[in-house]
Amino acid sequence: MNIFRLLGDMCHLVAIIILFLKIWRSKSCAGISGKSQVLFALVFTTRYLDLFTSFISVYNTVMKVVFLVLAYATVYLIYLRFRSTYNSESDSFRVEFLLVPVAGLSFLENYAFAPLEILWTFSIYLESVAILPQLFMITKTGEAESITTHYLFFLGLYRALYLANWVWRYHTEGFFDQIAVVSGVVQTIFYCDFFYLYFTKVLRGSGKMTLP
């Protein structure tokens, strides 16, 4: 554990909590892509199956359980509890265009051709593109509430901190997880455009982020 990974995990946790509380308090999931949230729940489910096979640390186990619970709770709020507020017509990204290539790639490019390992690889590849339905929805509607942009900001910050973590681990431990690093770089790139809009629009102005 190093400071970058710890801060990264905390940003990830903050992002998920921000989203959950936003929906819970406003009793609305307007502007939120349910598809992205289902993909994240799928990411955590397929990655954290090792909860049953290997113990790493109390921290690791607790965080995995918390992420899983919050991911499914968020999906529950969007699709069941506050379903009437869900903008399904704006959430029109075709997730099969992500799932099929990601599933195919995880069979082709993995560390070991074993069920748990393929599922772990699938989760890594899927996480790198899981935010796309949300970004697509913002592009389509042309705006996002500031609280939604704070969620995306913390999610992007988590990714950026993980890149720093990998640089650190490479130099201190010689650790290099090629699949995670390549996917992580791809994932972080998706946030760059958003970061630019966040700093120029949301932080300087107030209220919603509107696209030019």
Binding site: R5, D9, D50, S54, N60, M63, Y111, E117, W120, F175
Partner: peptide
């Protein structure tokens, strides 16, 4: 190639 490390990150 041989798979040797645990996935210790979240």
């Amino acid at each position: 190639r041989e798979f040797t490390f645990q996935h210790d990150e979240l």
